Amino acid sequence: MKKMLAVVLTVLGSCFAATAFDTTPLQISVWPPNAQVVPDYIDVAGLKINLPYGGNKNITGLDFGIASASDRTSALQLNLVNVVKEEFTGLQIGLINLDGAASGVKLGLLMNNVDAMSKGIDIGIINTALESHGLQVGLINYCEFMVGVQIGLVNIIRESNVPFFPIINFCF
């Protein structure tokens, strides 16, 4: 029991000490900016737990819980709602994934939305992106520009010779 307490105190102590270095290996959030282990301007390089919601500028590592918000994330994100304002890289799993730009695999049960360029694979009921380089799989797939393939009931590539086609659409 004493060893476990020592480990917990060491981890929590390193989180508080991390504020001097602008990076922490562990973030536990209830509601930012006040109800979390370290302030939201501190970067997380390690484990981020959101119970129910957490927010930090930059996240690298594992980010899981109910809802997460950040500016940049390079991680495995497992939240019901993932919001990355600028750039996401990695594997994102949730009900709703909202990104500024994204590279990697996004599994959004309801929706994946990318405001700029999406590179990789988007799988969800609804997938939208300004520009997509890769694969979109869902009931409804939409993008303005595409280099890749869409598979779904409704497939729209606005700037294409074939802007709409059911089941499969592509543009190269």
Rank of each mutant, 00 (worst) to 15 (best):
D71C: 15
N97C: 13
A75E: 06
K119P: 10
F88I: 05
N79Q: 03
G104N: 02
V83E: 05
L91F: 01
A75Y: 00
Y53Q: 11
N97F: 09
A129L: 08
N56K: 00
N127Y: 04
I49Y: 07
I28E: 03
F88R: 09
G55Q: 10
Q77V: 03
I66G: 01
N50I: 01
A116G: 12
E87R: 14
A67N: 08
V38E: 02
V114S: 04
M117G: 15
Q77M: 15
G54Q: 03
N113E: 14
T128L: 10
L80Q: 10
W31E: 15
G54L: 00
L91Y: 06
T89P: 01
G100N: 02
F64Y: 09
Q27K: 02
L98R: 10
Y41M: 13
I66M: 10
I123K: 06
N58C: 07
S68R: 00
V83C: 09
V30I: 14
I96Y: 06
W31L: 14
I93N: 08
E86Q: 12
I93D: 03
I126M: 06
V44I: 03
K119A: 11
M111Y: 12
Y53E: 08
L76G: 02
I59C: 00
V81R: 06
D63S: 05
L62T: 04
N112E: 06
P39V: 09
V81E: 04
A35V: 15
L80G: 02
P33H: 05
A129P: 08
I121K: 09
G124C: 05
N127K: 06
D115F: 12
L130S: 14
L62H: 01
T60F: 10
A45I: 13
M117D: 12
I93A: 01
K119L: 11
E87Q: 12
N112F: 07
P33L: 09
N58K: 14
T128V: 14
S103I: 05
L130R: 15
A45N: 13
G104P: 07
L62F: 07
K57C: 05
I59T: 03
F88N: 03
A116V: 12
I96H: 08
P33Y: 13
L107A: 07
L47K: 08
P32A: 13
D99E: 09
L51E: 06
S118M: 12
S74E: 13
A45L: 14
I121C: 10
I42Q: 10
T60N: 11
S118D: 10
G94F: 00
I28K: 04
G61W: 00
N79E: 01
T23L: 13
I93T: 04
L98D: 08
M117S: 14
G104H: 07
Y53A: 11
M111R: 15
G90R: 00
Q92N: 11
G55N: 07
V81N: 06
Q77C: 11
L80P: 04
A45T: 12
Q92D: 08
I126L: 06
A101V: 05
I121F: 06
A67H: 02
G120M: 01
T23I: 15
N58I: 11
S29T: 04
G124K: 05
M117R: 15
G90E: 00
E131W: 12
G124M: 04
N112G: 12
S132G: 14
N34S: 15
G55H: 05
F64L: 07
L78E: 09
N97L: 11
A69E: 07
N127R: 02
S103V: 07
T24L: 03
P25Y: 08
G108L: 00
S68P: 06
L62S: 03
Q77A: 04
